[in-house]
Simulated assay, not measured.
Amino acid sequence: MARVFVYGTLKKGQPNYKHMINTAKGLAKFQGRGHTVEKYPLVIAGKYNIPYMLNIPGTGHHIAGEIYSVDEQMLQFLDEFEGCPDMYQRTLMRIQVVEWEGKGGAGEARAAADGVLECFVYSTATFPPEWVGLPYYDSYDSSGKHGLSYVLRESRE
């Protein structure tokens, strides 16, 4: 099992969460919530209002999200879904655990130094330079007050 940190449309209550609970795509078990140890810019960009974590450590906010344990099949699905390695790149990042529900309770999270776990995160190092000038968010919600609702793939032209 691999650990994945999701911060955008794959979180509970967001437009693509359905993929995380579709066992035909593999297994994803919710473990808890956390935020990035480093600060990153989280922007909403493009005509489909897609959330992107720009891989510019030290800029932006500590990004909030959810931690999942996923099997190899789900990890493969997520790579494909996230357009990895072209649109997003999957890299290991340090995530500060805020709330833990995983088996073994908080013990596993505590076992990591100061409750910090390494998780795979989909971020991008390849983006138009003007994205750096967009507003930065610390948490993503498709129906947030930013008014930039995510456009589902099946609704795109």
Rank of each mutant, 00 (worst) to 15 (best):
R3T: 15
Y7N: 08
T9Q: 14
K11N: 01
K12F: 06
G13L: 07
G13I: 04
G13D: 07
Q14A: 02
P15F: 10
N16F: 10
M20C: 13
I21M: 11
I21P: 02
T23E: 15
L27Y: 10
A28D: 11
Q31Y: 05
G32N: 10
G34M: 12
H35M: 12
V37C: 10
V37P: 03
E38R: 11
L42K: 03
K47V: 02
N49L: 01
N49R: 03
Y52T: 07
Y52E: 01
M53V: 15
N55I: 08
N55A: 11
I56G: 00
P57S: 05
H61W: 11
H61C: 08
A64T: 02
A64I: 00
A64S: 06
A64L: 09
E66Q: 10
I67D: 10
Y68C: 00
Y68H: 01
V70Q: 13
V70A: 14
E72P: 04
E72N: 12
E72K: 14
E72A: 15
Q73E: 14
M74H: 14
Q76G: 13
L78Q: 06
D79V: 08
F81W: 09
E82P: 07
D86C: 04
D86Q: 11
M87L: 14
R90M: 08
R90D: 03
T91P: 05
Q96H: 04
V97F: 10
G105M: 05
A106G: 14
A109H: 07
G115P: 12
C119A: 15
V121C: 12
T124G: 03
P128M: 09
G133Y: 11
L134V: 01
L134N: 05
S139Y: 02
Y140D: 03
Y140F: 13
Y140H: 01
D141C: 07
S142M: 05
G144L: 01
K145T: 09
K145R: 12
H146T: 07
G147Y: 04
G147S: 04
Y150M: 10
V151H: 09
R156G: 06
